[in-house]
Simulated assay, not measured.
Amino acid sequence: MSINSSAPARGLFIVFEGGDGAGKSTQVQRTSQWLQSAGATVLTTREPGGTQISEELRSLVLDHGHGEIDARTEALMYAAARAAHVQQVIIPALDAGTHVICDRFVDSSLAYQGVGRGLGVDAVAAINSFATGGLHPDATILLDISAQDGRSRRIANTGGIEESDRLESEPDDFHERIRMAFKELAAENPQRYLVLDATEDIEQLQSQIVTHLTGLL
């Protein structure tokens, strides 16, 4: 006797990218709420992070006070945190039919370490391909913002006091290189990327995101 059963449809892997202060966290939350209101099961997560070891690595690589971290070590720490995140959290959730919304993924490493730190996009892509097993987002939302606007937003969100991690405290020219790197990645992958002006109204941004994702669902 056979039992009719079907595996759940694979979940959608949605990633939000952009410079610091672009408003990714806000749109991650709103997008999750929209999907849940439509009856979907949703997991929101972030990088580096998402697992105990990944959160420990996040602290080591982003918090001040852990000594000097050279560019190669930084890139490998991000990749290690990502490997645990993908294997332990993201892939199991997607396979179970859960939509996964992630604040940053591989493209952040390509931008920050590949371009910002000068390691080269190809080199950083190679270690992250190994770390992720070749996993790619189904959709990447890029919230584009200038370094100056991003810094102003971060300061405003902390009551006028600039509280920056190791990467946020880099000078504006570093963050402008990151911005250009993201734009180039988006131009090379137009089928995957939705590029939005992060200075637009929050509701306008969410409306454009919903329209884009509805087409994928």
Results as ranks from 00 to 15, higher is better:
Gln113Lys: 08
Arg104Gln: 14
Ala83Met: 14
Gly97His: 04
Ser109Glu: 09
Asp103Ile: 10
Ser109Gln: 01
Ser109Ala: 04
Thr98Asn: 02
Ala81Thr: 14
Gln87Ser: 13
Tyr112Arg: 00
Gln88Lys: 14
Asp103Trp: 07
Gln88Asp: 15
Leu94Trp: 05
Gln88Phe: 13
His85Ser: 10
Ala80Cys: 14
Gly97Leu: 07
Ala80Phe: 13
Ile91Thr: 15
Ile90Leu: 05
Ser109Thr: 12
Tyr112Asn: 04
Ala83Trp: 14
Ala84Asn: 14
Arg104Lys: 12
Ala83Val: 11
His85Asp: 10
Arg82Gly: 13
Leu110Tyr: 01
Asp103Gly: 09
Pro92Leu: 11
Asp107Gln: 08
Ile90Lys: 07
Ala81Phe: 12
Gln113Thr: 09
Asp103Phe: 03
Cys102His: 07
Val86Phe: 06
Val106Glu: 04
Gln88Thr: 15
Ile91His: 12
Ala81Ile: 12
Val106Arg: 06
Ala96Gly: 08
Gly97Val: 01
Ala96His: 11
Asp103Val: 03
Ala96Ile: 07
Phe105Ser: 06
Gln113Val: 13
His99Arg: 02
Val100Ser: 06
Val106Thr: 14
Ala96Phe: 09
Leu94Ile: 06
Ala81Gly: 15
Tyr112Gln: 08
Val89Phe: 06
Ala81Asn: 12
Val86Tyr: 10
Gln113Trp: 05
Val100Leu: 00
Asp95Tyr: 00
Gln88Leu: 15
Ala111Asn: 01
Val106Phe: 03
Pro92Cys: 09
Val86Pro: 07
Ala80Ser: 15
Ala93Lys: 02
Arg104Pro: 12
Ala80Asn: 14
Val86Glu: 09
His85Phe: 11
Asp107Lys: 04
Gly114Ala: 08
Val86Met: 10
Ala96Met: 04
Ala93Val: 06
